[in-house]
């Protein structure tokens, strides 16, 4: 056995964590607590994590390509990158919502001002 491979112990733990995240998101979507459009990055994260843990040869390949010492580091790095992507994704969404809220608020104020001054128009 390649000494660099993850031990079964590590594998079980990693798959378990990924599965829990995956199922939690699925459940939240089912209960409509998380909208489908905001769930895909989480599901992708979970799926890729499971894939990497199960498909050890792929994990080893990536480990060599990025020059990491241990596959566990690669796994950690991957999850970190995904979290980063999710955080940036949220920044984009929040910015869009902020703009929409601003425009909506302005629209409301303008309409209300017109309603209370019916003499114009």
């Amino acid at each position: 056995m390649d000494p660099l491979l993850m031990t079964p112990h590590q594998q079980v733990f990693a798959v378990l964590i990924s599965l829990i995240v995956f199922l939690l998101i699925i459940e939240l979507v089912r209960r409509r607590r998380v909208r489908e459009e905001y769930s895909w990055l989480w599901l992708l994260t979970g799926a890729v994590m499971i894939l990497l843990v199960v498909w050890q040869q792929l994990l080893l390949l990536i480990t060599r390509v990025i020059g990491a010492v241990s596959p566990v580091t690669t796994l950690l790095l991957c999850s970190l990158l995904f979290l980063l992507a999710i955080a940036i994704h949220y920044s984009v969404i929040i910015s869009r919502l902020t703009t929409q809220l601003k425009n909506l608020t302005q629209e409301f104020a303008l309409l209300e001002s017109r309603l209370s001054h019916p003499e114009r128009r």
Partner: peptide, 19 residues
């Protein structure tokens, strides 16, 4: 023109321009 909550100087000004 009354904004329902405090949005900041810039938003108030832009509301004025739209008005």
């Amino acid at each position: 023109v009354r904004l329902p909550f405090n949005m900041g100087y810039g938003v108030a000004l832009q509301t004025a321009y739209k008005f």
